[in-house]
Design a binder for these strands. Structure first.
Lengths: 247, 247
DNA sequence: TCTGGCTATCTTGCATACAAGACAGGAAAG
DNA sequence: CTTTCCTGTCTTGTATGCAAGATAGCCAGA
C-alpha cells in the first residue's frame, strides 16, 4: 500500500504518492515540493511533475508561490474551520442518506476499528493518524459513490494537514470512541443518529485544535537558520537539509 | 458575466471559460476540446491549455482519450446516478447545517427566483438551464464556505451535462416550484424541512431523466457522416463543421 | 463492388530550452 | 559594525520541438 516511488512511473504516481504521504502524516504542511527534485526522484521531466502539481492544486492540497515554489498547503484558521464545516456537511449528509449497513460494510468497519485499537495499543502515531482519517473514507466507500469518496479523501488530507498545524496533542482514544459510537448507531440502523454523532465527533476534534497558533509564522526565520521546522516529537529530523519550508 | 475569451489571458481564463460555458449549457457533452484550437483561440501555447485541461480533468468535467483528444465528459447512467446522489448528500447536509437565513441571503435567493421566473416567461432555455443550476450554488454561497461552493459548482456542471444527455424535456416550472418550496422552508427557519425538500427536488429531476438513452451511442457514426450531434431543438447547428465529437 | 492495407495527417505525450523573477551571499561604501 | 547594492544561483512560467499513436482517405487487388 506504500510501495510507490519506485523507478516506474505508471502515470499519476506522483500525485497519489504525495496524497498518501499526507494521509499517513509523512509529509508536513509547508513542505516544499521542488519540481526538479520530484522530477529526478521519479525519473521524469518537470512537465509531468507540473501536471501532478496542477492537479493537486485544484484538489486544494498544494499551492504555488509564483517563481518561488510549490508547497503543501498550510490552511489558515479560517480555512481549517471551513474544512471541518464541509466535512460535517458531507459526512452527516452521507450517513443520513444511508438506509442499510450491508454485511460487507459491517465487516469492513469492524476490521477498521480493530486496526485502530491495535495501533493505539502499539502507540504508532503515524499509523493512527492515517487510520483516524481513513475511517471516514471507509464510510464513504460503503456508499459505493466514487464522487463522495474523492471529496472526502481530499478533505481528509486537508484535515490531517490542519491537525499537524494546530493540534498540540493527539486525542486518539477520544476519536476512536467517536468512531465506535458512529458504528454502533449504524449497526442499529439509526443513521440519523449516526449523522448527529459524526457531527459531534467532528466538533470534538475541531474543538481540540488550537487555532490561535498561527501556521508556523517563524518558518522563514527557521529555515534561514537551518533549524528543523516544528519539531513535533523526539523524532529528530535534522539528518539532512531536507526539502522543507513554507512561504 | 460572459465577456470572457477576449484576447487577454489573465491566468486561468481557459478553465473558467469552459466551466461557465457548460454551466450555461453552451457546451455540450462530448464536445471535443482541441489543444491547438484552444491555444490559438486564447493566444497562448499548448502548455497552458494542457494545464487547464488537467485541472478540468481532476474536476471531473473533461476527460482525455489517449492520443485522440480531450472531450467534455459524457456521464454514463451510473455516473449520472452518482452525481445526483452526491448532490443530495451535500445539499441536504448543507441545508441541515444552516441555522439562520440572513437578510442578504433572503434577498439573494428572492432575486434569483425572480430571475428564474423572468427567464421562464421569456422562454430563454439556455438561461433557464443556467439559473436552475445556479440556484443551488447560491444556497452554497450563503454558507460562506468556498469549499462547498466549489464542490457544488462542479457537481452542477456535471448535472447540466447529464441533463443535456438524458433529459428529453425541460420541466422548468417543476424545478422552479421546487426551488420556491425550499426557499419557503428556509424563510420559515425549518432547515430540516428544506433539506428534505431539496432531496425530493433532486429526486424529481433525476426521475425526469431517461437513463436508458445511451449517451449518444451513434456519435462516431454521426460525426463521420458530418451530421449535427443530437439535434435537441429547432436550433440548427450545422452551420460550420464545428468542433464536436465524442469518443 | 467490396475488402484490405498503406500513407499522410492530426492528435496528444513528453522533454527540453530559454526567460523572468526571487533570493542569498558577498563586496563595497558609509 | 551596519547598510546597501549587485551579482550569481535557483526557482517556476511558457513556448517549442519531436516522437508515438490514432485516424481517415486513398489505392490496389480480388
Amino acid at each position: 500500500m506504500q510501495d510507490s516511488q519506485t523507478s516506474e512511473t505508471p502515470q499519476k504516481t506522483i500525485e497519489e504518492t504525495i496524497v498518501s504521504g499526507i494521509l499517513s502524516a509523512k509529509i508536513r504542511p509547508g513542505t516544499r515540493l521542488s519540481e526538479n527534485q520530484l522530477a529526478t526522484l521519479f525519473g521524469v521531466s518537470r512537465t509531468r511533475v507540473r501536471e501532478a502539481m496542477m492537479r493537486l492544486e485544484t484538489r486544494g492540497i498544494v499551492h504555488v508561490s509564483p517563481r518561488r515554489g510549490w508547497f503543501v498547503v498550510e490552511p489558515s484558521a479560517e480555512e481549517a474551520i471551513a474544512v471541518y464545516e464541509a466535512r460535517r456537511v458531507v459526512e452527516a449528509g452521507l450517513l443520513r442518506s444511508m438506509r442499510v449497513l450491508t454485511d460487507e460494510g459491517h465487516k469492513a468497519l469492524d476490521a477498521h476499528l480493530n486496526e485502530e485499537k491495535g495501533a493505539m495499543v502499539a502507540g504508532d502515531r503515524q499509523r493512527l493518524t492515517y487510520l483516524m482519517g481513513d475511517f471516514h473514507i471507509r464510510i464513504a466507500e460503503l456508499s459505493g459513490n466514487a464522487i463522495i469518496v474523492d471529496i472526502l479523501r481530499d478533505l481528509t488530507a486537508r484535515t490531517i494537514l490542519i491537525s499537524m498545524l494546530y493540534q498540540s496533542e493527539f486525542h486518539a482514544a477520544q476519536s476512536h470512541d467517536g468512531h465506535c459510537r458512529i458504528f454502533e448507531a449504524m449497526r442499529a440502523g439509526d443513521f440519523a443518529r449516526a449523522a448527529e454523532l459524526s457531527i459531534e465527533h467532528l466538533d470534538e476534534v475541531e474543538m481540540g485544535l488550537d487555532l490561535t497558533a498561527r501556521p508556523d509564522p517563524l518558518s522563514e526565520l527557521r529555515s534561514s537558520l537551518s533549524l528543523p521546522p516544528r519539531t513535533v516529537s523526539p523524532t529528530v529530523r535534522p539528518k539532512k537539509p531536507q526539502l522543507q519550508r513554507s512561504n
